[in-house]
Structure formats: structure tokens, C-alpha cells
């Protein structure tokens, strides 16, 4: 485990009448409350606007869409805040490790500022050991296997101390064997930290592994 502690007690993630439109057409409409440590899964085939909803929650909605409703974390209204001030952990379909940084550098990139060079290095080593990659700090991310990259990407997000998690089809690009292992890892971490989580996926197994509520979009 890392030595960073959560600065505030976890709050629920609340989507209050969130509706996303494209022109006259309504893409998604969701009204939901995700308690700390639970996963809300949005299921549906591709093209129904699942990822668009996630983009709206994260703060990256493309200007061609119009959104209404509010996004809150407890009493904290995030709706109009720029993405970098929302402190939500966003895990993408691809690991997207920075190719210009080492594996350790990618993790340090996620850590909050401060702590001095040596302390930061120790925290990186500890985080790597935590995901079974002890001694990988100086490796080039390009030399890692798919599963290893996915674990580093998860740890990078967790090190940034998010207040909630957003998962965008996080397991779809992994081999079947790795997928199970990664699901267990991700959901265990989310529960341990008590993070409310919103996941979009088209894979029913993801929803079952998450074990929370499922909303079907069509």
C-alpha cells in the first residue's frame, strides 16, 4: 500500500437528471446515486452514448453535444468545473502510459506534488511492489506486457488520490485470461478505498464481476 491517505471521507457520486443531446436527439438520460465503494454499470451496445456520458462526468464532453443536469460528489457540485479540478480517476480502454517517461516516471506523474525526490522514489517502488512489478521503475513502458501496462495505468490513477472512479470499457482490450485477473484487482482496490465508481461496458461479465447495480441503455 502507499503511504498516502485519503484527505476526506468518501462521498457518493450523484448524477442528477443528466441528459446528453446531439441536436434534437437525446442520447442518454441517467439519474443515479452511486454510494462509496459501489460500482454502477452502464451497459449497452456501442454507439448508444455510454462513453459520451462518461466524458461528461469527467469534464471532457465534446462541444457538438449539449448536456443538462448536475454531477455531484456528495455536496460538491462538479458540473461546471474543468476536468483537472474534479479529482475523478479516469481509467481508459487503453493504458495510455506516457512513452516519454519510464514506468516509475509514469507513476510519479500521478502522485501529488511534494515529498522530495527520495520519498517520491520510495513511494513509486512501494506502489510497483503492490501490483507485483517490484523493480520495474526504470523500465520503458514499451517493454511491458499488456497486463503489466494495465496494472501500471490503474496504479497511476490511484496514486492521484481520486474521489471516485470512472471506468471506460477498461478490460475490453485484454486477453480473456488477463481480464479476470484485472477485474479482481480493480474492483478490490475500489472497494478497499471506498470509491464510488461508474463503469461503462458492453461485456456482461464486467457487470457481474462488479456486482453492483446495472443500468441498460438502448
Amino acid at each position: 500500500m502507499t503511504q498516502f491517505t485519503l484527505p476526506t471521507a468518501p462521498s457518493p457520486l450523484i448524477l442528477e437528471d443528466v441528459i446528453i443531446r446531439h441536436g434534437d436527439q437525446t442520447l442518454v438520460a441517467v439519474d443515479a446515486r452511486v454510494p462509496p465503494g459501489e460500482v454502477l454499470t452502464l451497459m449497452g451496445p456501442s454507439g448508444v452514448g455510454k462513453s459520451t456520458l462518461l466524458a461528461q462526468v469527467a469534464g471532457f464532453l465534446a462541444p457538438v453535444f449539449q448536456a443538462s443536469g448536475r454531477i455531484r460528489l456528495g455536496d460538491d457540485d462538479l458540473t461546471r468545473r474543468p476536468p483537472e479540478r474534479r479529482r475523478l480517476g479516469l481509467l481508459f480502454q487503453d493504458p495510455l502510459l506516457f512513452p516519454h517517461l519510464s514506468v516509475g516516471g509514469n507513476l510519479a506523474f500521478g502522485m501529488p506534488v511534494g515529498g522530495g525526490r527520495r520519498r517520491r522514489r520510495q513511494a513509486v517502488e512501494a506502489a510497483l511492489a503492490d501490483i507485483g512489478l517490484a523493480g520495474f521503475a526504470d523500465r520503458d513502458p514499451a517493454t511491458l506486457s499488456g497486463g503489466q501496462r494495465a496494472r501500471v495505468a490503474l496504479m497511476r490513477v490511484l496514486l492521484a488520490e481520486p474521489r471516485a472512479m470512472l471506468l471506460d470499457e477498461p478490460f475490453s482490450k485484454l486477453d480473456a485470461a488477463l481480464r479476470d485477473e484485472m477485474r479482481r484487482l480493480v474492483f478490490a482496490r475500489i472497494r478497499a478505498r471506498g470509491l464510488p465508481t461508474l463503469m461503462v461496458t458492453h461485456d456482461r461479465d464486467d457487470a457481474e464481476a462488479a456486482g453492483g447495480r446495472v443500468i441498460e441503455l438502448a
Binding site: 476536468p83 483537472e84 481508459f92 506516457f98 506523474f109 500521478g110 497511476r156 490513477v157
Partner: peptide, 25 residues
């Protein structure tokens, strides 16, 4: 685009995100 999005989702302001995540590439 992806680099910028990852960095901003991790809490980096637009200018820092560009300088630290995009510029080296």
C-alpha cells in the same frame, strides 16, 4: 489528445498538462 486527457484527468492544468505530457512527444 489522449496525452492531454490523461494528464488533465490526473489533475494537471491545461498548460502543465501540455508541457509535461504532450511537449516531450
Amino acid at each position: 489528445r489522449e496525452r492531454l486527457m490523461v494528464a488533465r484527468a490526473l489533475g494537471y492544468g491545461p498548460v502543465s498538462a501540455f508541457a509535461k505530457a504532450v511537449l516531450p512527444g
